[in-house]
Each structure stands twice: as C-alpha cells, then as structure tokens.
Amino acid sequence: MSTEVATPEVKPAEPLFSKKNRALITDPLNDNNPITVQVLGICSALAITVKMSNAFVMSISVLFVVVLGNMIISALRNVIPSRIRIIAQLVIAAGLVTLVDITLKAYVYDVAKQVGVYVGLIITNCIIMGRFEAFAMGNKVGPSALDGFGNALGYAWILVAVAFFRELFGSGSLMGVRIIPESWYATQGGFYFNNNMMILPPMALVIVGIIIWVQRTYNTKLIEQA
C-alpha cells in the first residue's frame, strides 16, 4: 500500500501511519463523528437500527463502499473533470453499492434479505458523498483509504450503539439472542412489555440525541460558543 502513497514529489513520502494519518481514523470516532457531530447519514441511522445484526451488516457494507470509493476517487482525482465530478462520484458509489448488493445476495443470502432495501440506500448516504467530495478529491490514495475507514467506523459505532438500545428495549433481545426472559412478559403472566416506541424510527432520533448530549458533556470543545 505504501507504494501507492509514494508519488514523485519533492518532499519525502509520509509514512502511512504517521500521527496526522492516524488522526484520520481517530477523529471521526469522536471529535468529528459523521453522525453526532456532522449530523450526516441520519436517515440510515433511523432505518436499520432496530436489530443489531442489521446495524452490523450495514456498517460493514458502508465501510467497504466508502473505503474503496475513496481510494478510487482519490486515484482518479486528477482526471475527473470538475464539472461532472459529483456525477462521477455518484456513478462510482452506485456501482460499488450494487456490487455489494449482488455479492450479498449470492453469498450471504439471509443477510441480504434482511438488509435488502437499505443497501440501496447507501448510495444516498451523505457520509459517502461527503467523504468523496471533501477528502478523496484532494488527497492521496493512502490517506483517503484511512479517512474512509475512520468515518465508516465512526458511523458504525453510533449505529451499533443505537441498535443496542432499540433492540434491547424494543424486542428484549440482542443480536437476536433473548435477553429479557419470556416469562417476564405480560402475555406469559409476567409484568413486562416491550417498548414498541423503540421499534419506531423516531425513537432512533431520540437515542442519537441522547448520545450527542452525553458526548458533548464529556467533550466540551464540541459545544458551540453562542
């Protein structure tokens, strides 16, 4: 991979995991998180966080698309005509997403069925277009890959965190494994009800809001000065 980074330039090639490049991965996890700070990709965060397994598959698919897409865009950045750059980015994103979709259907059919409609939505995920336009168009292949990886991870952990609460309180299970015993349920003579609000999309927004709140309590530099 380091050979890809080394382009004939005057200044010495930067090691791939330099401090600056490491920040590309760690930044999106907290200080510059795509969901909680940039508030991008909210739509998919609402749609596929009912079950943790769906959130994982979505995260992995986004990771694949954004890393590979970032690398392709970055490699082509000097030849993409600027007037059609958004269209070119969209074609590449759509191509990769369709590739993911076909591959899932052929090899992990059960998963593909569960996330089927949402995989197509990756194309419109603002994080992907955002990274292509803001980072890959102006940086080398190596850092672009790291940036894509970091942002996908930042997206993934929020998704999984939201899904954790929604699945636990909405369905009483985690990753499909039952956590709250059947015998507690009112229908079985117990006292417990699943919170159906958790299943509905608006509750995802509330949970994302709470995560933002908690994050800003600990990370005070995110608080905007009035």
Partner: peptide
C-alpha cells in the same frame, strides 16, 4: 471521461 467511466462501471456490474 463520462463515457469511459459509465462503460467501465456498467461492464463490471
């Protein structure tokens, strides 16, 4: 560029 890009992506898919 547009023609080549679309052809390559289309063929690949």
């Amino acid at each position: 560029f547009a023609t080549i890009l679309v052809t390559v992506v289309g063929t690949l898919l």
